[in-house]
């Protein structure tokens, strides 16, 4: 069994384990990005093409048009039970990234999710997060309980031995379940290549630029790249040293510093 198959099999086991415990009270979060689309692919594999639970898309209404197109195409093709979660109330109030990115994310992502969880009574959510995305993710568990405020008590987490996962929840808790926690960005692309998983065209280079991670159109910056196919992306990742999200953060810091150094008279 090669490494990718090993990752695949572990993920399928976790997906089935989650479903066995949370039938009818579970959904998968689908951002239409490469990670969650791969997770969706694995969920279909786990249940032989017929997903026994809904997929949920948190729609901020600021997503790229390619995302909506992709979502609708594959919802139909794969016969998905799609839930589109929107914070209509906040959108009516005119919340948008120009007015404040923090508020925008809280209202249109976090609160939209909270509202949908309550509306549908979900107790478990499958998410495609990976350990290598960010330092704090290294502390994540596969089955990660959250309280009613969605807070994660990472300092006081139960043990998770072998592949025995915490299965029972206290009254107001729900589970974040991370079947792909052990994958890396490179693994994901290798798997997409091997399985020929469809992904949105935003990941491929146009005019020397492509998106490495995608969210809202308003807050995403493409990276310089000539990779036009999955194969070229895999090759590119072998030589890239910067972290997936680091590019975005450093750009922001650099812009801030430039501004500050001007104020201080250096430039």
């Amino acid at each position: 069994m090669n490494q990718i198959t090993e990752l695949e099999q572990k993920t399928i086991y976790i997906i089935r384990e989650a479903y066995a415990q949370y039938k009818g009270k579970m959904a998968m979060l689908w951002s239409i990005g490469k990670d969650s689309t791969s997770l969706l692919w694995l969920c279909r594999k786990a249940f032989f093409g017929k997903l026994p639970f809904p997929v949920m898309h948190i729609d901020t209404s600021f997503k790229f048009k390619e995302i909506y197109e992709f979502r609708d195409k594959y919802t139909k093709e794969w016969g998905l039970d799609l839930i589109v979660a929107k914070n209509e109330e906040a959108l009516k109030r005119g919340v948008n990234p120009k007015k404040g990115k923090f508020e925008c994310c809280t209202e249109l992502k976090t609160n939209a999710l909270k509202q949908a969880m309550t509306k549908y009574g979900f107790r478990a959510l499958l998410l495609a997060i990976r350990r290598d995305e960010h330092g704090i993710r290294a502390k994540e568990r596969v089955f990660s309980p959250r309280d009613e405020h969605f807070t994660w008590d990472y300092k006081n987490q139960p043990a998770e031995l072998w592949d025995q996962y915490k299965s029972k929840l206290a009254q107001d808790q729900h589970f974040r379940i991370h079947p792909m926690l052990h994958w890396t960005e490179k693994n994901i692309w290798e798997y997409i290549l091997r399985e020929n998983i469809p992904i949105t065209s935003l990941y491929f280079s146009k005019n020397g630029k492509r998106y490495r991670s995608i969210g809202c159109e308003t807050c995403c910056n493409p990276v310089c790249s000539n990779a036009k196919t999955v194969k070229e992306i895999v090759e590119e990742l072998k030589v890239t040293k910067t972290a997936e999200r680091a590019g975005r953060a450093q750009d922001k810091e650099q812009a801030y510093m430039m501004q500050k150094l001007r104020t201080l008279g250096y430039m």
Binding site: D132, H134, G135, I136, A138, K139, T184, E185, K241, T242, A243, R245, A246, A249
Partner: peptide
């Protein structure tokens, strides 16, 4: 400290 890390 959960700051940025490189996967490597």
């Amino acid at each position: 400290k959960e700051m940025t890390i490189d996967t490597s």
